[in-house]
Design a binder for these strands. Sequence first.
DNA 1: TGTACATCAGTGAACGCGCGTTCACTGATGTAC
DNA 2: TGTACATCAGTGAACGCGCGTTCACTGATGTAC
Lengths: 188, 188
Amino acid sequence: MRYEKGHKDATRERIVDVASKLFRQNGVAAVGLAGIMSDAGLTNGAFYNHFESKEDLVQAVLASALNRRETKLKTASGLEGIIRDYLSSSHRDGAGGGCPTAALVAEIARHSKTTRDGFTEKVSAFIPLIASQLAKGSAAERRRIAVAIYGMMIGTLQLARAVNDRKLSDEMLESGVAAALQLAGLAD
Amino acid sequence: MRYEKGHKDATRERIVDVASKLFRQNGVAAVGLAGIMSDAGLTNGAFYNHFESKEDLVQAVLASALNRRETKLKTASGLEGIIRDYLSSSHRDGAGGGCPTAALVAEIARHSKTTRDGFTEKVSAFIPLIASQLAKGSAAERRRIAVAIYGMMIGTLQLARAVNDRKLSDEMLESGVAAALQLAGLAD
DNA sequence: TGTACATCAGTGAACGCGCGTTCACTGATGTAC
DNA sequence: TGTACATCAGTGAACGCGCGTTCACTGATGTAC
């Protein structure tokens, strides 16, 4: 073969990584395939050697990014660290490498059933992972709190990103951290 | 004049209302001007009699929709009702007539400074309105809780919309209501 | 009072552009005989 | 060992399409004289 073994897989992964960053930074609708391929060091014609369509790429990107998030959640040392990390200024300012849910959840709601299925599956896996980090309460209570903390982190991060006032944005992150810790039973 | 007094204002308002609904349902990027004008019963050329650009329309839509939200907040009877209304299945299923922030916050973060300025101003006005509905705590504490409740409502509503599983989606809304009431000091 | 002109919201065709997608082709390597 | 062919990741031009935007034009009304 012209290319060494694993070359195609590596190229595909590179396309997914580039698209993942661009999608999270600018949204799926605002990012074109030509730009993705060019950032990946290829020409646009090569795209269809790797994916059936843009929607297919979206699914691959979500699966990849959500899996990484899941691994991060699994290996995190504690819920307080997860919360502080999530609602940090560096996460706010680095959407391209950050949580795909916060960046893309509204768009996902408008995508194909298959895309939403994949997202639903991963979100379903996140909830017990967060719940298992909670110290207090029945299983049902922990699950309920986990969902609320997840929702709050996503919404607060998005607000902090949209708002055009650094002080207000910082305040939002801090308020989110405090409330999440309170819900988790970790408040001072 | 060809048209009665107030005709142009009424037309402009109709365009804003149509765009407001379509933007919230499908996102700004996914909605074209021709579709908006056609839904408003006009042809696309008339658009520029009313707005300078699509971005100008986006600003008008946000101002209008956020002002309506503000009025709704001001005239609401109590925080519990606001929360239950916000995290209801009808709000989840009716994005076109619902909260513009939940539908568009991620896109707003990527729009022009002017657009973000307008959004920031309105969000800044919402926070004290929510805070004033809280019964307990110092002014700073009430403000902190208000921000967190707002963030949670937005994030949870978006999650409930994106997820492709009715039962999970309903559970998210219920968990969000319970946690918001808990933060507000209104829990059973 | 009648006529010529100004006003202006709206029409609808056209502009250049970038989109997602297709396709004939390239050329380095592996395989068959 | 040498030659003919198959493989296939990638190239780059082209496709039709819808986008935001522009513009010459329409025609009903108001205004001037």
